[in-house]
Amino acid sequence: MFSRRPLFSLSLLAAAAAALAPIAVHAQAAAWPTKTIRVLVGSPPGGPSDITSRLFAEQLQKRTGQAVVVENKPGAGNNLAAGVVAQSEPDGYTLVVSPDTVVTTNPLVYRNMPFDAKKDLLNVSILASFTQLLVCNPKVKADTVPELVALTKTQPMTYASGGPAVPGHLAAEMFLQKTGARMQHIPYKGPAPATTAVLAGEVDCGFLATPTVMPQVQAGRLKALAVSSAEPSELAPQVPPLAKALNQKDLDISFKLVLQARRGTPAPVVAALEQHAAAIMAMPEIQARLRNVDLKAVGSTSAQAERTMQQEIARWAPVVSQLGLKMD
Rank of each mutant, 00 (worst) to 15 (best):
P107E: 05
V69M: 08
N72E: 08
T36M: 05
P44M: 02
E71M: 04
F115K: 10
Q61T: 11
A57W: 12
Y93V: 10
S53P: 12
P44N: 13
L60C: 08
M113D: 01
P138K: 09
L122A: 03
V97H: 01
V39T: 05
N123Y: 02
A82G: 12
L134T: 12
F56M: 11
P44T: 04
C136F: 05
K119G: 00
Q132A: 08
A81F: 11
G77M: 02
D116A: 10
S53I: 10
V124Y: 07
Q87A: 11
A117N: 08
P45K: 08
P99G: 04
C136S: 14
P138N: 13
V39K: 07
N112G: 00
P107I: 12
T52V: 08
S88V: 06
G83C: 15
G42C: 09
R38G: 02
T34Q: 03
Q61A: 15
D50Y: 14
Q132V: 06
D50E: 11
N137G: 04
E89T: 13
L133F: 12
T36G: 00
L134E: 06
A128M: 12
S53C: 10
I126A: 06
K141C: 01
K118V: 05
T104S: 15
K73E: 00
A117K: 15
K62G: 02
P114H: 01
V84E: 07
E89N: 04
W32D: 03
E89M: 08
E58F: 03
L80Y: 04
V85N: 10
F130D: 06
A142G: 12
I37R: 09
D50F: 11
N112M: 06
Q66P: 02
A86D: 08
V102T: 12
L108I: 13
K62C: 00
M113Y: 03
I51C: 01
